[in-house]
Design a protein around this nucleic acid. Sequence first.
DNA 1: ATTTATGCAAATCGTTTGCAAACCT
DNA 2: AGGTTTGCAAACGATTTGCATAAAT
Lengths: 162, 162
Amino acid sequence: MRTIPNARFWTRYDEVVINDLHGAVAARLKGVGQRYTTGREVLIRALAEAPRPLTAAELVAAEPRLSQSTTYRNLALLEQAGVVRTVTGTDEYTRFELAEELTGRHHHHLVCLSCGTVEDFDAPRRVEQGLADAIARLSSGTGFRAEGHRLDVLGTCAACAG
Amino acid sequence: MRTIPNARFWTRYDEVVINDLHGAVAARLKGVGQRYTTGREVLIRALAEAPRPLTAAELVAAEPRLSQSTTYRNLALLEQAGVVRTVTGTDEYTRFELAEELTGRHHHHLVCLSCGTVEDFDAPRRVEQGLADAIARLSSGTGFRAEGHRLDVLGTCAACAG
DNA sequence: ATTTATGCAAATCGTTTGCAAACCT
DNA sequence: AGGTTTGCAAACGATTTGCATAAAT
């Protein structure tokens, strides 16, 4: 999954968003007393260009400049800084994507039960509204303080369905 | 199939459901050419009595009769037989619960971002209906064949909130 | 110059597996 | 008996970490 000539195919976020993105990442890192190094920028760029959450191995494979240990270290750091979010599929790999607070795009995931890949998808506004309402009401009953939700649709991806 | 002295505190499913449960598990195992051994029954009982998904370590700790390797082996086997389902929280442990097909109780999870524990909760019918509709419509668009969904509410549990 | 980040290789730890003994039918 | 299941201990593999070097301020 290297950088492809025709980048537009892979790009999830337009130029403006991307430009803001690096500034926002730098700001968040500075807020936690961390630098926005070249290696970290490479990582963020790879995540921003991917059409779906990626595993650490995919990131390393996509960007020869990234070493395994530093990739894991920076992913953990970026997660703590609120820049990156981890995504769990059905296989043994942790996947990573940009935090919604940065992209401004709330979305959910299609998880393939066969191969484990995770694709993005958007739920209808009506569904999101219903979820938000239910979750808001939830807190009062259980003592659980809700901060967000994740909705995964499990099934078989187009590639595996054949 | 005896009843445990103070079972009520922990029991999620009433006697009738539990009794059917063991028969259903046995049937499913037989369907995959496997036996319903004593050890597997202990495992199922522990899962049925727990008020939330448990980790393998919790299961072993709860039941001295269970050895670690057999527990993992049987959990994997029971999952393949459609008896057990794995649940992913935010920590490094895989959790296990009875499959909804067996319990007949569709539910979702409250995942604590602080300590990682997972509690069960039921979404309002209206939300479930909205999800079902959205997912049904989804398949046509993407080539992804949906088979189910999982909805987790992320936040802070009562214990961690203090 | 001093602090922070990186890469390599070794360590970690939840989970899996090989093998001999115990179990079921 | 003949095949399956179990428990122990060793192996596995994704992720983490120690340490010496490179980069950033």
